[in-house]
Design a binder for these strands. Structure first.
Lengths: 239, 239
DNA sequence: AAATGTGAAGGATTTCACAGCG
DNA sequence: CGCTGTGAAATCCTTCACATTT
């Protein structure tokens, strides 16, 4: 349930009648939010966070676009998909924009997250300070290696995978970051889904089959970078 | 915005059985390789590596497609872009495929890479064993913190950024992974480009402006995952 | 004047569907 | 047969351009 209990305000003009998770405002460019839009929404959030810190109150589509190297039309069209409106001649209200993007990404409440696999990468993830401010809280860490279980990493104690299901339930975990060796990634992923996790961010270079997941494959990104530096001399930076 | 792709015809050469290191086929679906294709090529490489290990000699577009959750037409069309051909009724030769994809991504030679920033993430990257087999060698590590310089991480000794330029030159470094705090990322990126690095894989959640780079923003990926798990119940897993 | 909101145009990418080959 | 190679169709995404709003 999205709770937009902000006081009415002249910048914000959304139809927030009964927004159940799957319903969309209808002054939007109707239809489902395109994947390309979703991916840009996360970038807008990043920039808007900066702007808010600097005390900026409004932002125009074209200034925001410039910061990201995209077109202003693209920005406006993305905002329409999530039903955000601005003010002609002035722009969009930064604070509202942040709330509405968060809301449409399912980030109005902090998402409770776990890390599975306490190798170098898993430990780095646990200690990374940037999650909290972007909507995620790491509530537990897991490994199978008995030598690692019970050890403190950051400010969490590593637990056995046997405790997975109960932790997911009692702690209301929704997402997991999977940082285990590729050989076991699929197997552990199945355990995660069956324990009730709803999505996995997978750092192993493997497909995970049926469930909901996103891969982060650093070597693959390097390979794409390699291609760009070879072929086009004047390529646009992207992310 | 301006689309300044200025790559009409660079070098066009055949690469069927005659072998010449850097060649670009012409029985391709002419024109530049689409970004979407490039990103899938890296995934094909991953799967093909597995298949090769298992001793498979050929693979059909549809079996490969199934493994990645995409369509076989997509696979065939991607292969056409890089001028790879298969055999009717049989499929594609795994070993050749690997070579040709590597070739078209600029990976026929190992790419010499550095890591800048020896925090938790930088150290995890240095120790990650998966780069070598996918075409990258980490040849040096850098930090600015005097307490870290001279320290051994993995099997490299951390160097000062002052040595950057000379290392890039003498070691023929082409790519860098940037794992420094967001506040200094842009500044360090400029140093990297001016030292002669041709592409940067940026782990800080910031845009880097003009040069050639790709961002890996873990929190942003989590946010996209969050969206997917909220909205569509029957979403396709992707990467 | 400055900026939004949006049809319509234009590209890019994906998928279809099927002829033809081994 | 099974599978490739490929035009053509379909879909998705981006950008243009301009009327409209504050």
């Amino acid at each position: 349930m999205s709770n937009l209990s902000h006081s009415p305000n002249r910048w914000l003009r959304v139809n927030l009648d009964a927004m159940s998770p799957t319903s969309r405002p209808r002054n939007s460019r109707s239809g489902p939010v395109p994947a390309a839009t979703v991916s840009r929404l996360t970038l807008y959030l990043r920039e808007l966070g900066d702007l808010a810190e600097k005390g900026e109150e409004t932002i125009s589509s074209s200034r925001l676009a410039d910061r990201l190297g995209i077109t202003s039309a693209s920005v406006r069209s993305d905002f329409q998909f999530i039903g955000v409106s601005g003010v002609s001649g002035r722009g969009y209200n930064v604070r509202n924009l942040i709330e509405q993007i968060k809301d449409s990404l399912g980030l109005s409440l902090v998402q409770r997250t776990i890390v599975v696999g306490m190798g170098n990468l898993g430990r780095a993830l646990i200690s990374y300070p940037g999650f909290q401010s972007r909507g995620f809280e790491i509530v537990a860490a897991f490994d199978t290696d008995p030598r690692k279980i019970g050890v403190r990493v950051g400010h969490r104690v590593v637990q056995s995978l046997e405790e997975l299901e109960s932790v997911v339930k009692t702690q209301k975990v929704s997402l997991a970051m999977l940082a285990v060796p590729a050989e076991v990634a699929l197997e552990v992923a199945k355990q995660l889904w069956s324990a009730g996790v709803s999505g996995i961010l997978n750092f192993a270079p493997t497909s995970l089959g049926e469930g909901e997941y996103v891969n982060v494959d650093v070597a693959a990104e390097l390979q794409q970078l390699s291609f760009r530096t070879r072929s086009k001399g004047a390529a646009r930076a992207a992310e």
